[in-house]
Design a protein around this nucleic acid. Structure first.
Lengths: 205, 205
DNA sequence: AAAATAAGATACAGATGTGTATCTCCGTGG
DNA sequence: CCACGGAGATACACATCTGTATCTTATTTT
């Protein structure tokens, strides 16, 4: 029953990753308030000192953890051959990748915003940098080429309408979307807005 | 320079309202974490005991405060004579009423969700009850009568698309929307989706 | 193999919060 | 006009976190 093995010591990158992974996990199931140095050290099965040796304070650790976490599971744009397929696939992928992340999204933005003055948009921007929205651009460019979308209708707002609605659902419910919800967003909102033909894109009566 | 007046004592409802107002204010400018019994008592210029006499713990006080705060500034649906006007006016009103509230929306949902297990949607539902979405129904019904909207296109998702996008912006940026953003949502997304005529509402290629 | 490096454990002082328990004294109602 | 409910002020025990400082000990590096 020797449960107390001395446990070989991790070092350098390996240890750092373990800490960030633990931090991310902690953030997910406890939220911003439960993200304490103690808790993270504990979950990583290491010691507070090890953390303080790398990051000066809780905030830095949080920053590093967010960057680490938000950059997992990033992937190139899908290519199903149709705009509809690409959009659905893309949202579906986010949805899976963020099944665990879902609670977090609402969680951390709260108190974190209050303390840091950063908005969720800020954090996202900082963490994802230029990569943000890259897939979408590719998907849309291809769709235009195929004649599935009218470039004139692809205003800034319309381009992001699907992701925005997706994210809205995620934030409001703190849970992954059903597949139907994803399809609904694409079929009832996004596609009708970008489909070529018929009358106007934007503008009023 | 007698700044230390004995300050006449408030009682009953008056005092309770003062506490809730203080709590709401506290929540708005400090967020969930700053919402401590001490802070609220302080801001209300009363004493911790007074609060504990009414609510058993921080959580109950928070509940009461949210209900109190979210029910301010509620108003009937606007009636400008056109769907476009109604929608814009409606969003604009929310926007004003929530100029202060904006930071809060993102703020409180965070840690609060984590601690309570409630989602933002839950809180909204609990606080607003049946009143939620009432205005929108009226606005849309009138629009259908006038022939400005095609009832067949008014799916559940499409009906709420404008508010959803509005709320999404609010949450992401923790700040009121610009007027242009509101108009954009209505003109580029909502109206094109509900306008009668031309091809299909929902469904695919 | 010795020396340098960093992991892992505590221990500490300080700050801040909670919820409970008193105590004084204002102001209203009998 | 006086008794009593409740406002307002502390004080306390307890808990939790932070950031710093040691100290021991396992691995690397030389």
């Amino acid at each position: 029953m020797d449960l107390e093995q001395p446990a070989k010591r991790r070092r350098g990158q390996e240890l750092e990753d373990a800490i960030l992974a633990a931090g991310w996990a902690q953030l997910i199931d406890g939220g911003y308030n439960a993200f304490t140095i103690d808790a993270v050290a504990d979950k990583a099965e290491t010691s507070r000192s090890v953390i303080y040796r790398r990051w000066p304070d809780r905030d830095s650790l949080l920053d590093a953890t967010l960057t680490y976490g938000l950059n997992r599971d990033r992937i190139g744009p899908p290519d199903t051959g149709s705009l509809r397929g690409d959009m659905i696939e893309s949202l579906r992928h986010s949805n899976l990748a963020r099944a665990e992340l879902a609670p977090l999204m609402s969680v951390f933005m709260g108190a974190y915003y209050a303390d840091s003055g950063r908005t969720f948009a800020d954090v996202r921007e900082r963490a994802l940098g230029a990569r943000a929205g890259g897939s979408l651009d590719v998907i849309l460019a291809r769709a235009v080429e195929r004649g599935e979308a009218d470039p004139a209708k692809l205003t800034r707002r319309v381009r992001t309408v699907a992701v925005d609605l997706y994210r809205h659902d995620l934030l409001m419910n703190a849970a992954p979307l059903s597949d139907e919800a994803i399809v609904e967003i694409v079929d009832e909102v996004f596609l009708p807005l970008v489909k070529p033909g018929a009358e106007a894109g934007p503008h009023e009566t």
